[in-house]
Design a protein around this nucleic acid. Structure first.
Lengths: 131, 131
DNA sequence: AGATTGTATTCCTTGGGGAGAATATGTAGG
DNA sequence: CCTACATATTCTCCCCAAGGAATACAATCT
């Protein structure tokens, strides 16, 4: 038996992105982000979904390492799990050069089209400037 | 009355995340990332998908502002589009505090428990959900 | 013990969307 | 013009997955 760990690691972002490609699961993730931890009934209450659907979505999210569980009596406290979130985020981050190239082009255009005015920061951080 | 522009902006990341939640569309995005631009037939050739599927996936990606088109004779050159990619990336970036908190905890743990033994995963998942 | 609450699971139905084949549209070239 | 090529669209089929209802399982309380 060869190590399945590497395969799992490679597939992790794929599983995570598949899981996030569903509006109600994104809703659950956003709800979990607001409160530090939530039980299933709290998520049912906050989402408007029915309990079985919430449990099923949580199962998918758990398989994608997007949430983790802590058992406490008959309650189960779910929280966000870093591994899956980071894997999905990293997948998108690999495309950062695309919008950085766009900002570079914008900078060049501004530099050509405007007189040499006082430009305080010619090398700004493009990934945090939106809107 | 609220501005409909804001609603469009809000929906953009949702549309983008929905679109990316499909393996073959992610494949197309990755192929487009390698080459600066690609025609449909190039994508058909590189992906192994058939031409109608590629065109249909490109249509979805285009609606999500993940790709853009440049017409050139009877060819259509597709390239990555920053808006959708960045919107989806930003959605995940809003969860950054989750894994940064984990790194902080890891730092604290290393600082206290300083022996340099290789500790593979201090973050274990106690539940067993497999099929 | 039974009752009650919290959660997971099973079964069933249904709808959406992805794949395939055929066709339409559009464009260059002889 | 007619043909060949590049791409888009339509139609159909089918699978999978989300939703609903009922039930099973687990744990606390009296």
């Amino acid at each position: 038996m060869q190590s399945p760990v590497a395969l799992d690691a490679v597939a992790l972002d794929a599983v995570a992105l598949d899981a996030v490609g569903e509006p109600n699961r994104r809703l659950i993730l956003e709800l979990l982000h607001r409160h530090h931890e939530s039980t299933v009934t709290e998520l049912v209450d906050a989402s408007g979904l029915r309990q079985p659907q919430v449990s099923k979505h949580l199962k998918v999210l758990s398989a994608a390492s997007l949430v983790s569980v802590r058992a406490d009596g008959r309650h189960r406290h779910y929280r966000l799990e870093a591994r899956g979130l980071q894997a999905a985020h990293d997948w998108f981050a690999s495309f950062e050069d695309v919008w950085q190239a766009r900002f570079d082009a914008l900078d060049a255009l501004v530099a050509v089209d405007s007189p040499p005015s006082t430009n305080p920061e010619p090398d700004n951080n493009p990934q945090e400037s939106h809107q």
